[in-house]
């Protein structure tokens, strides 16, 4: 191997057979064995960690599938209900998805708005404390959210539900009657919204703060107002990140157990969001798992597997959305 080649590709070299270049300072061997050992050690550790993660994931998936199959293939008689497994899990999927979507629909504009306020509008003295308070919301345990939702927030919403069922009950989601405890799917969804709010807010805030000054100033120098500058420079820069933040929030909402289990007084699927009824997969598992045996336990595990698949699909979709904008992301 020639000298120039050796030097040109020194970083990529893994063998230690080549000679040091002639102009190497005396006493400083370019063939740095200890450094190379460090590199190898680190790449070994990373590889091992990667493999462990894959093995654990595969193990979890294998466990879920193995224990879920009996319930999925069982007949209604074996399950001791009048539908197959799919008839059982369908309403739960609907409840989970509806609650999470409402949560995201509420939390996204609020979270993005607060993040923008902190990053681009609020004076520094106000921005920082507000940021801390939002971050603190993330530190509250979900049991506390559940208890608050069931006892305080739900009760506070009852008058609103009463109004909705009185005036808008021609819309199926607001009728025909309303819950008098407020422990409904809509309450659960709103509690979930509060819980995912800090995720969306703090991720978006970090993103917005990282908008290159270069592009903000480009917009301002063209005669943009602050809001126009945000539309031209901040949002396009943060677009992929906002999608990821929303997906993370959606994942959290879909998988949230404790809060929903405490808030919701579960029942069969109904269209109404403000009357008793409906349930979600995590709440169903949390409420039923400790007393479940045999085929019932298998049924709950299968429900968990369905949730796993839903979150996976959501994540893949999010990646596809992000990849579509790659050319225009500013990364090039």
């Amino acid at each position: 191997m020639s000298q120039t080649e050796t030097r040109g590709s020194a970083v990529a070299q893994t063998t230690d057979t080549e000679q040091p270049p002639v102009d190497a300072p005396a006493g400083v061997p370019l063939d740095n064995r200890s450094g190379r050992f460090g590199d190898r050690l680190f790449s070994g550790i990373s590889l091992a960690a990667g493999i462990v993660i894959l093995v654990v994931l595969a193990g979890v998936a294998a466990f879920l599938i193995r224990d879920a199959i009996p319930a999925v293939v069982a007949s209604p008689e074996e399950l001791d209900r009048d539908t197959s497994f799919w008839g059982y899990v369908g309403p739960l999927v609907a409840g989970s998805v509806v609650a999470s979507l409402i949560a995201i629909l509420v939390a996204t504009p609020v979270g993005v708005g607060i993040a923008l306020f902190i990053s681009h509008y609020a004076p520094k003295r106000l921005a920082q404390p507000l940021g801390y308070v939002i971050d603190l919301l993330a530190a509250i345990p979900s049991v506390v959210y559940g208890a608050w939702g069931a006892l305080v927030f739900g009760a506070a919403l009852v008058p609103g539900y009463a109004w909705l069922s009185e005036h808008l009950s021609f819309i199926p989601i607001f009728g025909p009657t309303h819950s008098t405890t407020g422990r409904t799917l809509l309450t659960a969804a709103l509690v979930l919204a509060v819980m995912v709010l800090p995720i969306i807010t703090s991720l978006c805030r970090e993103l917005f703060l990282q908008t290159p000054k270069l592009h903000e100033e480009a917009a301002l120098a063209l005669g943009a107002t602050r809001w126009e500058m945000i539309k031209a420079a901040v949002f396009p820069f943060a677009r992929a990140g906002i999608v990821s933040a929303v997906m993370l929030g959606l994942g959290r909402a879909l998988g949230e157990t404790m809060a929903v289990a405490l808030v919701l007084s579960p029942g069969p699927l109904t269209a109404s969001l403000i009357s008793t009824g409906n349930s979600t997969i995590p709440a169903e598992i949390a409420l039923g798992f400790s007393e479940a045996f045999g085929i019932r336990r298998s049924e709950l595990i299968a429900a968990g597997l369905v949730l796993f698949v839903i979150t996976l699909v959501v994540n893949v979709l999010a990646r596809l959305v992000v990849a579509r904008y790659k050319d225009f992301s500013g990364a090039n």
Binding site: P212, L214, H215, E217, A218, A219, L220, A221, L222, G223, A224, A232, A233, P236, F237, R239, Y325, F328, S329, G330, N332
Partner: peptide, 16 residues
Amino acid sequence: RSKVGMVFQRPNPFPT
């Protein structure tokens, strides 16, 4: 600013 345009030291077209 819409009457007085500015070109910056580093080219800054909007990347998106």
